[in-house]
């Protein structure tokens, strides 16, 4: 279950990396934007958390789209010398800006949205929150829809083409700018969806994106940079590593277990589990 949650966190960043071949260090803030969009929708419109999912998706998509349009598009328009470094520093700066905007203009304190489905179910010695089950189900459904969209639709195939070879895709008639912009928007929307779904469980606060960003990068690297399937499986492996290390060695070694697996995989297969050499 924890693995599916981690998988949901890492899908968006993998999606963006797959298309743009550039890291997005503001991904945690896309996640934050989704959580705050949900929170504001709950508090202002007084609607249940479940109904705020479209609001968060829209906010994440809009943020991703605008960021790509105004900050990132130069990386493939070849107007700059080092596009990777440019994207990294730009998104890092954006991340700091967005965090501080929330602190300055709203509140630095933790908030929370009401549970999507209140209640728990007993399991072994503890109880499991129903929201965790809902999040896991939505993660699986979202991934399935995403794979279907990318694999079966013309639009999805054009995104894959842009991700694999931009010049080739351009020759084949793909509108690269449009594909990149929409990919970034969808990546933002996926991060925002994760933020919205996890806000009732983990709360929301200005630098809430740090942990998901770390997990996402580990899951993406473990699964193979740019591989959606790899990202999902990477997230699940991390979740299992966390749980097993904590249970059999000790909770304080949970992160050690995660990084140990990453190091072993990278040593054996430097491209990650499902990554391919460019």
């Amino acid at each position: 279950m924890l693995g599916l949650i981690y998988g949901l966190m890492s899908i968006g960043i993998t999606f963006i990396y797959g298309t743009m071949k550039a890291p997005n260090f503001a991904h945690g803030e896309f996640y934050m934007a989704g959580a705050y969009a949900s929170y504001f929708a709950v508090t202002i419109l007084n609607i249940p958390t479940f109904l705020t999912i479209p609001v968060s998706l829209l906010a994440g998509f809009a943020l991703g789209y605008v960021v790509e349009q105004f900050l990132i598009s130069d990386t493939y328009k070849k107007k700059i010398e080092r596009p990777g470094e440019y994207a990294m520093l730009t998104t890092l700066g954006l991340s700091i800006l967005l965090q501080n905007m929330i602190k300055e203009f709203y509140s630095p304190f933790m908030k929370s949205t009401p549970p999507i489905l209140p209640g728990t179910v007993p399991f072994y010695l503890v109880s499991i929150n129903l929201d965790r089950i809902i999040v896991s189900i939505i993660s699986v459904v979202t991934l399935a829809l995403l794979f279907l969209f990318i694999g079966k639709t013309k639009e999805g195939r054009s995104w894959r083409a842009a991700a694999q070879n931009k010049i080739g895709a351009l020759v084949a008639g793909v509108n690269i700018e449009r594909a990149c912009r929409l990919s970034y928007g969808v990546g933002g929307a996926l991060a925002a969806l994760a933020g919205c779904l996890l806000a009732p469980l983990y709360g929301l606060y200005p630098n809430m994106g740090y942990w998901p960003l770390t997990i996402s990068f580990v899951a993406m690297t473990l699964g193979g940079l740019g591989s959606l399937k790899g990202s999902l499986i990477g997230g699940m492996i991390i979740g299992l590593a966390h749980t097993f290390t904590a249970s059999f060695i000790g909770p304080s070694y949970a992160d050690v277990g995660m990084y140990a697996i990453l190091i072993i995989v990278i040593l054996v297969k430097p491209t990650g589990l499902f990554g391919r050499r460019d």
Binding site: L201, A246, P251, S252
Partner: peptide
């Protein structure tokens, strides 16, 4: 003693150690 890394958001593993 149950240690938790600062900045973590999911304490399932740590709290399972308490539960067991």
């Amino acid at each position: 003693k149950i240690l938790t890394p600062p900045g973590k958001t999911d304490y399932t593993a740590e709290l399972q150690a308490v539960a067991t």
